[in-house]
Design a protein around this nucleic acid. Structure first.
Length: 160
DNA sequence: GTCACGATTTGT
DNA sequence: CAAATCGTGACG
């Protein structure tokens, strides 16, 4: 069963924790989500939406359940899931997917995700997220690879 | 229009 | 530890 849009229309942190263990598929390929990071709509200086609404961050302000893809370091794509009700720019960065390797850039390359998928609806189309049982345990740690607000405990991963 | 920089990965 | 590599956002 594909996750309904209502699943995404919740606080960013709840969506982030809920996504762990769910199955992300791209044209049928993919696997369980093992690691994510939350980027909050308010008070989070590391979030792209912090600087305001721009062409790139436009989708973050739209309805939830869509993909926010961006090119980073001029060579890697990163996949995010838009959370919160429409108008509130929260999102969840997918950092690791089972079978697609660890690392935001590696999994997008492995699954063939590019800017073409910017704004893609995750409830239909080639890129989907399916329901799955809740994970039994998860770790919560500070986010990685950022400078601003780096200490906030917004990184979640499935415990081994 | 110009410029510095980043939610990374990979190789030295 | 440093390079690769380019769109975006800040500034003039």
């Amino acid at each position: 069963m594909i996750l309904p849009r209502a699943f995404y229309a919740r606080p960013t942190v709840e969506v982030a924790r809920g996504l762990l263990g769910k199955r992300l598929t791209m044209n049928g390929r993919g696997g369980r989500i093992l690691e994510v990071e939350a980027y909050l709509p308010c008070g989070d200086e590391a979030a792209h939406a912090w600087r305001g609404r721009t062409p790139r961050t436009e989708v973050l302000f739209g309805p939830p359940g869509h993909a926010y893809v961006f090119l980073n370091y001029g060579m890697h794509y990163c996949l995010n899931v838009v959370a919160e009700p429409e108008g509130i720019p929260g999102c969840v960065l997918i950092r690791a997917v089972e079978g697609a390797g660890d690392g935001p850039g590696k999994l997008t390359r492995a699954l063939g995700i590019t800017l073409e998928h910017y704004g893609a609806d995750l409830t239909k189309g080639p890129l989907k997220i399916h329901a799955a049982p809740e994970v039994s345990a998860m770790e919560v740690t500070p986010r990685i690879g950022i400078r601003r607000s780096a200490l906030l405990p917004l990184r979640f991963r499935v415990a081994l």
